[in-house]
């Protein structure tokens, strides 16, 4: 089963492996990212930090068989790089029925983006994208690590409006 889908520009890092993997009791991390899948250095790096008993695979967003992941007996954490990638994954079969929560981890500052939480900055089109994902049935939340408070979409929109 897919325990959580997370959007994080940093892909696999400490918050994911030290925070979420033990919290979700996940045994497998699926990184669905075209750029990382194309880089041997990135693929080697992703597996470097895995705790014993945890696997990881890196593949392009379009190549992931979401149905098989959802049917798997393992608890799986899915990591995507961007809101756009999440929309592509949704089109490819990563549906709310297969994983209800869409978590926002780290999206860094850039000129078009406004601050939402200490680790999440969003642009206008990204907020639009999140609205579409929520309309499709995902519960969207911004939360870096499990112990943080979750910020829901209504609050994300409010903060974006203020920012």
């Amino acid at each position: 089963m897919i325990a959580l889908a997370r959007i994080d520009e940093r892909l696999v890092h400490g918050q994911v492996l030290v925070g979420w993997v033990p919290h979700l009791e996940a045994r497998r991390v699926v990184v669905a990212d075209d750029e990382a899948a194309a880089s041997p250095l990135a693929r080697a790096a992703m597996t470097l930090a895995l705790p014993p008993g945890t696997e990881a695979d890196v593949s392009p967003v379009g190549d992931v068989d979401w149905g098989a992941l959802a049917a798997s007996p393992q608890r799986i954490l899915v990591v995507l790089r961007s809101v756009a990638a999440a929309e592509r994954a949704l089109a490819g079969g990563l549906t709310p029925a297969r994983t209800p929560v869409l978590n926002l981890g780290n999206l860094h500052h850039s000129a078009e983006r406004r601050p939402i939480t200490p680790s999440v900055f969003l642009s206008g089109p990204e907020v639009e994208g999140l609205r579409r994902l929520a309309a499709a049935g995902f519960r969207v939340e911004a939360r870096a690590v499990p112990l943080d408070d979750a910020v829901d979409l209504a609050e994300i929109e409010r903060r974006w409006g203020e920012g």
Partner: peptide
């Protein structure tokens, strides 16, 4: 590109081994 690719995974190694 080197910094971009390695910062996340090496953070995971450091957080996992040293901090945790």
């Amino acid at each position: 590109a080197y910094k971009q690719v390695l910062q996340g995974p090496l953070a995971a190694v450091g957080d996992g081994f040293f901090w945790a």
